[in-house]
Structures are given as structure tokens and as C-alpha cells.
Simulated scan of single mutants.
Amino acid sequence: MADRTTDRTSERTSDEKPRLKEYEGEGITVTFEPRRCLHAAECVHGLPEVFDVSRRPWVLPDAAEPDRVAEVVRCCPSGALQYHHRAEDAVSEPPDSPTTVRRTHAGQLVIRGDLVVTGAYGDRHETRVMLCGCGASGNQPYCDHSGPCAEPDDEDVPEQR
């Protein structure tokens, strides 16, 4: 089966739900919500044959084994990338247990687990999110790096001697 890309909604306006792109493969479907992407690049570094921003479509789920694609998608800290196995008996991404919450130096809350996040479009079931800690995000409650969290995270900067 050829990879198919579907744009579930039209371009975003203030009254519409966020745009979600779907990349369908034989054994796994990857979804991408561009507005939540914080460009951590875990996907492109983890599996460049599947995730390549220089081509269209930029996600080719069949370019690697479904379990490997799922493993790399789970590395996406913002939850912009998610997956669903296509087999009849397979479940979607299992949440981490126990739920974990970590605050970055810049103030974002990185949360992984069985989550319900309430935002402008109601409740959403999530397994991974990066929530705004400064209140400046235009995509509340999700971080969009529009406030102080756009500053480099000192935890990620190598120490200089």
C-alpha cells in the first residue's frame, strides 16, 4: 500500500480545531499536529528514512518496521507526532505508567502518562505533552516557544570548562 497523506482539517482559523495530518502506512499510521511541533528533531535524527523534512510527504511510515516507527514517535516530547497500529487487535500508543511530570529550566511542563488535557477545543486524551509554564503561548495549554521558554534550556547546554 502506498503512503497516503490526509489533511483532516483545512487551514486553521481561530474557530477551527487544530490541523492534523495523517500519514498512513501498511502497519502503522503516524499523525502530525504542526502547531504543537517544537522542532526537537527527535524524529529526523531517530529515523531519517521515515522522517525527512526535505521531501513531500515528509513522513513515510512504510520506510521502516512499524515497531521502530512507534519507538521513534514516542520520543517526540511535544506529542505533535502520534501513532496508531493498523492491525485489528493492536492498541494505540500506550501511556507511560506511572505518569511523570518534569519542569524544564525554561518553565515548560513535560508530562508523560495517561492524560486528559483541557484546552480551547475541550478535553483531549494524550500520552505526551509539553505544556506552557509561562502563560505566553498562543496555543494554550501547549507550549509554542513564544515566551521565555524560547530561551535555550541551560540543562541542554554543554558545560564549558
Rank of each mutant, 00 (worst) to 15 (best):
R74Q: 08
D89E: 15
T31D: 09
D3M: 11
R56N: 12
S92A: 15
V73Y: 02
W58F: 15
S92R: 10
V101K: 13
S10A: 14
T127E: 03
V72Y: 04
P158F: 06
S14Q: 12
D62L: 00
P57V: 04
T104A: 14
N139F: 07
P148E: 15
P152D: 11
D7G: 00
H84M: 07
R128A: 08
V53W: 05
V110G: 06
E126L: 03
P77I: 08
G46M: 04
T5N: 01
T127C: 01
P34R: 08
R4Q: 12
A40H: 09
P148N: 14
Q108W: 02
Y121I: 06
C43Q: 00
E26Y: 03
G27V: 01
D52T: 03
V117G: 02
V72C: 02
R55S: 01
Y121M: 07
D7Q: 10
S14A: 14
E24D: 12
S137F: 08
A2V: 04
R103W: 14
T31G: 10
G25H: 09
Q140W: 08
V69C: 00
E26W: 03
E155T: 07
R124N: 02
A90G: 03
R4P: 00
Y142M: 09
R124Q: 13
S97Y: 09
V91P: 00
D67L: 00
L81M: 09
H105D: 14
G27T: 02
R12Q: 13
R86V: 09
A87I: 00
D62S: 08
E126A: 08
A41S: 11
G107K: 06
G133V: 05
T127P: 00
G135V: 04
R161N: 10
D96P: 01
H85G: 02
V129Y: 09
V72Q: 02
R161G: 12
S10T: 11
R55T: 05
P158A: 09
D52K: 01
T5A: 07
G135K: 08
D67V: 01
Y142L: 14
S92K: 06
L60F: 00
